[in-house]
Design a protein around this nucleic acid. Sequence first.
DNA 1: CTAGGGTTAG
Length: 553
Amino acid sequence: MMGPIKIPFWPPNLSICIQNWTPLIMHCKVFDKTRTRTMYVWNALFRALTLAGHGIETLNLYREMNSLGIPSDRFSYTYALKACVASECLISLLQKGKEIHAHILRNGFEGHVHIMTTLVDMYARFGCVSYASSVFDEMPVRNVVSWSAMIACYAKNGKPFEALELFREMMLETQDSFPNSVTMVSVLQACTALAALEQGKLIHGYILRRSLDSILPVISALVTMYAKCGNLELGRHVFDQMEKRDVVSWNSLISSYGIYGFGKEAIQIFKEMIHQGISPSPISFVSVLGACSHAGLVEEGKILFESMVKKHRIYPSVEHYACMVDLLGRANRLDEAAKIIEGMRIEPGPEVWGSLLGSCRIHCNVELAERASKRLFELEPTNAGNYVLLADIYAAAKMWDEVKRVKKLLESHGLQKVSGRSWIEVKRRIYSFVSVDEFNPHVEQLHAFLVKLSEEMKEKGYVPETKAVLYDLDTKEKERIVLGHSEKLAVAFGLINTNNGETIRITKNLRLCEDCHSVTKFISKFANREILVRDVNRIHHFQDGVCSCGDYW
DNA sequence: CTAGGGTTAG
């Protein structure tokens, strides 16, 4: 007689295993007549496979179950949906997910909170925000988890405004869907994305009132929020107040110091973490290597990279290699960076080539840039940033025909250059600027302000840097273009509309331009203002004519 | 046997 099947530790050769298992399960059905018992076995198998990341196998088995005429139950649906996103393969299982979605509706499960929430999450992970929100909107019953899933969907897919708006709506629903710690983490991420410091402080207040301030994920998210919103001190303060810390809390602090360009301090914190008995995770190394790279600490970075395997038995992933390429490339050791790629023991992905291309831009290396971009265009043909980087490099080398060619290439993929945008929070309102902005009512005043400022600066030795301009124009024209950059408009707006002594906080969606960097340094001295600019990857803290990045970025 | 969350490069 066969007893109940126990799921053993999963053996490595899955496909063979599944072939052996399927008849076993069918066999089991013969012995165990009750249907729930059989479903339990199927579901347990789905669970084991999905947890191990074998989405394809789960779905194959799921199909087999269906073809045997066994209907899904509420458990199998959630596993099948999770399997669509838990695949090791790169092929998209979105279509499969939609099919299961249809089955769910056809079989009358549209009122099942667990299944519908899983559905929201599945679409979220595919980046299909509108699908997720329409499922969410149609849900007859919602609870904290469903609300949190939808807020997380917005926060993770570049829709922070929508995330905060939904959170507001959630708070109005007074029934049984009070936000909990999981909700708050996503809400904090939305504040981080917007660099909305004041909003973040209000959320912090709410967290304190709801006594959610001792939950590790919440505190880590708080530390990151404060640091990335331009207030490292408050982030540090939250960290210091923690009673218990885990590796993620430490990672938050390490990367926080890193983005400001405080590399030595980041290394110090990394060492302190180990000293306190916490083993570094792979992400700790990404954070600390990133910090070295931001600060130009090449030798320190190399030593840390070597210690990964030797001391901590952590094998470098693509991300770690990308950090090393960035570290060396930025320091103008491009040949060494290229050697790192050649010596990689895993397939170099777009992250690695992207790092190399970025470094080529800084040091105007056309030849290497062409090599890197060739690979990049194959690996991620629809990433507009790569084309723009290459065009930048050609423009810097005055190779205007090539610039045109790359721009055409970009357009041939139906893409366009992401335009620069900066924003600033003044009196709890967010003001946004783009470089050529005819609709912003403040622009004329700001332009006049900047023209006057630039004249004054020129007398004091300022020379505009127009390398960032991708058009073959004369110097005067180029100067006019860089003077209208969104980050300069935002700084000017901040100077005019905030009080003396108030810190100005700007956020930009792209990398800060070189000319804007030197102008902001200048302003910080002559207007005697502290100015923080957060660009795509880091924070520049300007004070008294100096920037925390040490002009290395 | 069921749903949501922390830290990551450029």
